[in-house]
Every structure is written in C-alpha cells, then in structure tokens.
C-alpha cells in the first residue's frame, strides 16, 4: 500500500468534486434546453433533450418490462410530454433530470394501468403532481391576473373553438372524446385546438406587450 489513506481520501474528494461539477454543468445544459423548448418551442433544444434521455429511458423501460415495444411506447409518451409540458419545469424546485424522471414514471404508471386494468383514467399527475402545490399556482395566477385574462380571451373565441378549448383544458376530455361528444371528425378537433391556441397566444401577447 504505497498510497496513504489521506491522499487516497483527497483523491476521492477531488474526484467527487469533479463529478459534482460535471453534473452541475450537465444540469444547467438540460435546464436551458427545457427552457428553450418551453419558451421558443425550440426543436434543436428538444433534439438535444431527446438524444440525452431517450436511449436511457429505452433501457430503463426495457429492463423493467422486458418488452422493447412497450419500452418504445414509454419513450414516445415521455418525450411527447416533455415537449408539451416543458413550461411546467421549475429549476428552483429541483434537478431537470428529476423532473424528466417524474414525467417518465407518471407515463409508465398510466400506460401500465391501461394495459392491466383497461383503465384510461390517467391518475398519475394527481398522485405525483408535476406542478407542486395547488395553492401556489393559484397565487401565481392571481398575482399576474393571468387566469382572468386567459378566461376573457377564451370567451372571445368563436363558439366551436371555445367548446373544444374548454373541454380539452378544463374538463380534461381527450381529443377523441371531444370528437365523439361534439360529433365532428378528430381532425376537426385538432385543427380547432390549433387555431384556438394560436389565437390565444396572439391575444395574450397583445395584453403583455
């Protein structure tokens, strides 16, 4: 044993420090990608996120479920949610890797429940909220009056778009359920939502400019 305990420990400590610095840099990069996806719908940032997470998720899900096509579904669903929910990530609440892990865990839970119990009740976001506490959200909304503004904007939408937006975001109906409920093709629901969101973005932009 040529090396003294002291120097071994020192080496270890330095090594640990190097690793934790590397982690910090990595976390910063991931958090920046998430922010760019949320704010700019940045496809390049999303591609980086995809390259970082998808092969890891594929491996986790394959070893957990022993089924590659199910694993591919977990990858697809998780990354879709990362694209659609990036604005819910809050860097002050924890590491971006933990946030994506939560998204993956929730997706897997709902997917497995769908397979096992034939239930599409998507309970995961109630069990493991992606947005921390409800009271806090309400406060944020009240502070910015954003929720009132948003409602006012929604009320200005043409009726067909209004009902789709309300059904989808406030009553949490799926696009398929809405299509059935309103008796129009699925494509129509999709395009109404797209139009409505474009219009909402425009309205909200005007207010904040």
């Amino acid at each position: 044993m040529g090396q003294s305990i002291d120097s071994m420990l020192q080496n270890k400590a330095q090594h640990a420090k190097a690793i934790s610095m590397e982690k910090e840099i990595e976390h910063k990069a991931i958090a920046d990608w998430l922010t760019n996806v949320a704010q700019k719908r940045d496809k390049r940032a999303f591609t980086e996120l995809f390259r970082f997470f998808a092969p890891k998720i594929q491996r986790i899900a394959t070893s957990k479920y022993g089924n590659e096509s199910l694993a591919a579904e977990v990858v697809q669903e998780t990354m879709t949610n990362v694209w659609r929910k990036a604005h819910l990530f809050d860097a002050s609440k924890g590491a971006p890797t933990t946030w994506v892990y939560t998204v993956m865990r929730n997706v897997s839970f709902d997917l497995l429940r769908k397979i096992k119990s034939k239930k599409e009740d998507n309970l995961s976001d109630d069990f493991w909220p992606l947005v921390e506490s409800v009271e806090e959200d309400v406060k944020v909304f009240e502070d910015h009056l954003a929720s009132k503004e948003m409602m006012a904007c929604i009320d200005k939408l043409p009726d067909p778009q209004k009902s789709v937006v309300k059904g989808f975001y406030f009553m949490e109906m799926s696009q398929e359920q809405l299509a059935e409920h309103l008796d129009v093709p699925l494509g129509t629901i999709k395009s109404r939502l797209r139009l409505a969101l474009a219009r909402l973005k425009q309205h909200m932009g005007e207010i904040h400019d």
Binding site: K43, A54, R84, V131, V134, S147, E172
Partner: peptide, 20 residues
Amino acid sequence: IASMVEEITLSDEIDIAIAD
C-alpha cells in the same frame, strides 16, 4: 431519433396545468 423528434414536434400544442 430524427423521425421521432419530427413526429413529436409536429404539434405545437401544450398542456396547460389547471390551477384550481
């Protein structure tokens, strides 16, 4: 990777968290 990214980013919709 390219085709999955393409498919996912095709839609610009976001999921709005419901406050109340």
